[in-house]
Amino acid sequence: MNAIENLSITGAKILFETPIRIFGQQLVITESQVNSWIVILAVFILCKVLTHNMKVRPESRRQIIAEFIVEKATNFVKGNMGEQFAGFAPFIAALMALSALSSLLSIFGLFSPTSDLNTIAGWAVVVFVMITFYKLKGGLGGYLKGFTQPIFVLTPFNIISELATPVSMMFRHFGNICSGSVIMTLVYAALATVSTAVFRWLPGVLAQFPFFQIGIPVVFSLYFDIFGSLLQAFIFAMLTMMYIASAAEDGEAAADARRQRKLNKQNKHKKQEV
């Protein structure tokens, strides 16, 4: 019964508190921040090691791996967003690497930064800013007019659905990773309880040793930790690309419409002058 009583499902622990105050809130350094620094460092070291000492004709295995990753990322972005967005490949690859490695930290028993809503909220806000930036390329008027389509009665719903984009993105990622870690905690506790119930007759410390925790959690971990993490990284990147590409399309269409209107006006003036 001990395992069930000791079971604790908590969020990110606060490691230390800084004296800095922002809007009356104390700035604290949490476990998820420190773990995401670890992830950033890991990505940085990986990039440094893979791109070290590069040649025009690849000789080392490292360079071949690096070229493979870059080519895959570029083709992935080009295939989903179109040729003109090839410049997005580094951003999307960085997002995927951060998301996947953060979620995979839970394999090592560390708190994964992606099961803290704040981490993913940051990414979602970045994506939202980019979407709005590309929509604003068609001019502020066109952007605001987009909210009143198809009829102006729907304006509040359009605003809600615009804000729902980042919210649903961050809840999807957070919910999947967090539910995985909650289920893994429950599985470990249940296995410990069952094994102490079954091996009660063993002498001394051995009776309390959770034998069932060896090997059996791998099956669950494969799905919840590895498959779920990689899938969520893929989906977050995919949705980012789709939203940005469609926003750019909208902005482009609005800009075209504006240009057309200007041309028409000029033509009209010319006709009047003639």
């Binding site: 999807r172 919910g175 999947n176 539910s179 899938l231 969520q232 893929f234 989906i235």
Partner: peptide, 23 residues
């Protein structure tokens, strides 16, 4: 897989409400 992940959103919302209610 992409469609499944998008369809999962409503379930995830339920899960988050459950988490809020519990903790």
């Amino acid at each position: 897989l992409l469609g499944c992940a998008v369809a999962e959103t409503t379930g995830i919302y339920g899960f988050i409400v459950a988490l809020l209610l519990l903790f």
